Simulated assay, not measured.
Amino acid sequence: MSEPRPETRGHAAHVVVHPVTDADEDPFRRVDIVTAHVGVAHDLEDVLDLMRRAGLDDGDLDDPRLVEWQGGGPEVWH
């Protein structure tokens, strides 16, 4: 795993995937990492990409200590 970025170093990494937002029939979920908004995801691969960009290369989307799914789990995108 790569060295965490300074904003996540010393913290338990915590990813929050917010409930689905249905924007003009293109649903997405807002993603925050360590309380900072990092982008939106349209599917699981987008969540993983945002995590990799934040230095969380070994992110387990099923680990509740790492990822908090609000408004439904990883299977909910609509």
Rank of each mutant, 00 (worst) to 15 (best):
R29C: 03
R9C: 14
V76S: 05
G39C: 04
V31I: 05
D60K: 10
V17G: 02
A36W: 05
H78C: 12
T8R: 13
E7L: 12
E75A: 14
D43Y: 03
H78N: 13
W69E: 01
S2M: 15
T21K: 09
H78T: 05
P19E: 06
V20F: 03
R30F: 00
E75G: 13
D63G: 11
T35H: 14
F28W: 07
H42R: 04
T21R: 05
E25L: 14
V67I: 11
E68N: 06
G72I: 07
R52P: 08
E68G: 10
P19T: 06
Q70D: 08
D58K: 06
G55P: 05
D26V: 12
V67T: 06
T35K: 10
F28E: 02
L56H: 00
A23D: 08
R53F: 11
G72Y: 07
G55H: 02
H18P: 02
W69K: 00
D46Q: 03
P64H: 02
D46N: 02
G71V: 09
L56T: 00
D24N: 12
V34R: 13
G59K: 00
V76E: 13
V20R: 04
A54S: 10
D60E: 11
R53Y: 11
V34T: 12
H78Q: 12
T8H: 15
R5T: 03
D32P: 09
R5Q: 09
P64F: 05
H14I: 02
V76A: 08
P27K: 02
L66R: 11
R29W: 00
E7T: 06
V40C: 08
A13Q: 10
D22L: 07
T8K: 13
T21F: 03
H18S: 04
D63Q: 02
P74L: 13
P4E: 03
V20W: 08
A23P: 07
A36K: 13
V47K: 06
D26C: 14
V20C: 01
H78I: 10
E3L: 15
D43W: 05
E7K: 09
A12M: 06
V16H: 08
V15L: 04
G39K: 04
V40T: 05
E75W: 14
T8M: 12
H42M: 04
W69C: 01
V38R: 07
M1N: 02
E3M: 15
V17S: 01
E7P: 14
Q70N: 12
L50N: 01
P74T: 00
W77I: 01
V47P: 03
E7F: 15
G39I: 01
G71K: 11
R52L: 09
H11N: 12
L44H: 02
V67Y: 03
V38F: 05
V47D: 03
G71M: 09
V40S: 13
H11F: 14
E75Q: 14
D32K: 14
V16D: 15
G72E: 07
D63R: 03
A12R: 08
G71Q: 09
W77F: 03
L66Y: 07
A36F: 09
A23C: 12
P19S: 07
L61M: 04
P74V: 00
R9N: 13
G10D: 10
T21G: 09
L61H: 04
E75K: 10
D43R: 00
R5N: 07
T21I: 04
D63S: 08
E68H: 08
